[in-house]
């Protein structure tokens, strides 16, 4: 018996080595992107740059269609999206000029760049969307990867926003929306702002749980950190909200036009019936942000 245990024990030594053999022989060195900067607009800007870089080096197939190397060889359609049958060309990248409309229930496998306002019909599924103006999403639109607007983003109910959503202006939320990362000025449920708070606290808050339900509106100037739960109601915060557990927000304003902050939690619940307005960044686990 002891010999068997010894043999099993010694064999544990070799399991990691076998694992490395099974998992491959790539010997790439650990690399650090020395120029990397955390940027909520990374996806959109990177995509725009790729398009502008290849626009003159692409191979013309016809007056609306070119072939170019983005991350890999792609077909790029130049034109108005609402004039194109997306079911046929859904595996193309689209660069569309002026105002564009995507019909209800359309499915695009590749990225879309719109230079004007972009209207996305209900229940459409798009991989990634960038617009140099505003974007309007109908009910139930599913963005698989990212959405980026130089203007505002207006969401319909029950939209699903993949890994990143960023707007230089407002992101207007609606009930049933699920998200991972949002960045906007502000990200809000409606345009109502919290009126001048009647009380003010200037301190950082830290605890296992931080629960603040103010009867009248309260101003907290400082950061709020918790290990398990943050629940805020009728509060304006000039600071960051960070929780390793879940965050609940009802009638809450974070930051203002002059200073932006972050709201970060494993899950983030935003009350869609209340006035929530966050100037800056919201982050939850993958699709664990909810407007309820």
């Amino acid at each position: 018996m002891k010999e068997v245990i010894l043999l099993l024990g010694v064999s544990l030594l070799f399991i990691p080595i076998f694992l490395t053999l099974i998992l491959g022989f790539r010997n790439n060195s650990l690399s650090i992107d020395m120029e990397y900067v955390k940027d909520p607009f990374y996806f959109g800007n990177s995509f725009r740059k790729k398009i502008s870089d290849v626009i003159f080096s692409s191979t013309i197939i016809n007056k609306n269609l070119v072939k170019a190397k983005l991350s890999r060889e792609e077909l790029i359609v130049f034109g108005k999206i609402n004039f194109i049958n997306s079911v046929v060309y859904r595996n193309c990248v689209y660069v569309s000029f002026g105002e564009n409309h995507i019909r209800k229930g359309t499915y695009f496998e590749k990225e879309i760049l719109s230079t004007g306002n972009l209207y996305i019909g209900e229940d459409s599924v798009l991989r990634a969307v960038a617009s140099n103006a505003d974007i309007f999403l109908g009910k139930g639109v599913h963005i698989v990867r990212w959405i980026d607007a130089q203007g505002s983003i207006q969401l319909g109910e029950d939209c699903i926003l993949g890994i990143s959503s960023a707007s230089k202006k407002e992101i207007k939320l609606a009930k049933g929306v699920r998200f991972t990362r949002l960045f906007g000025f502000p990200v809000c449920t409606n345009k109502n702002r919290i009126k001048n708070p009647s009380r003010e606290i200037r301190e950082n808050r830290y605890g296992k749980e931080v629960v603040i339900h103010a009867d009248e509106s309260l101003l907290i100037v400082g950061d709020i950190f918790a290990d398990e739960k943050i629940e805020l109601k009728n509060v304006k915060v000039i600071g960051n909200i960070f929780c390793h557990g879940d965050v609940y927000l009802e009638n809450v304003e974070v930051g203002d036009e002059n200073s932006y902050f972050s709201v970060i939690g494993n899950k983030v619940f935003i009350s869609g019936n209340s006035n929530v307005s966050i100037f800056g960044y919201i982050q939850a686990g993958y699709l664990k942000g909810f407007v309820v």
Binding site: V10, P16, L19, T20, L23, R26
Partner: peptide, 30 residues
Amino acid sequence: MIGTFGNFAPFYQVVAGAILDDSPAKAKLL
């Protein structure tokens, strides 16, 4: 063998780290 192999980073940790870094082959020198 298991606990002090490498002393500063016992080998299961090394392999787990190499896998997380997407460089499992590095652990061949283990």
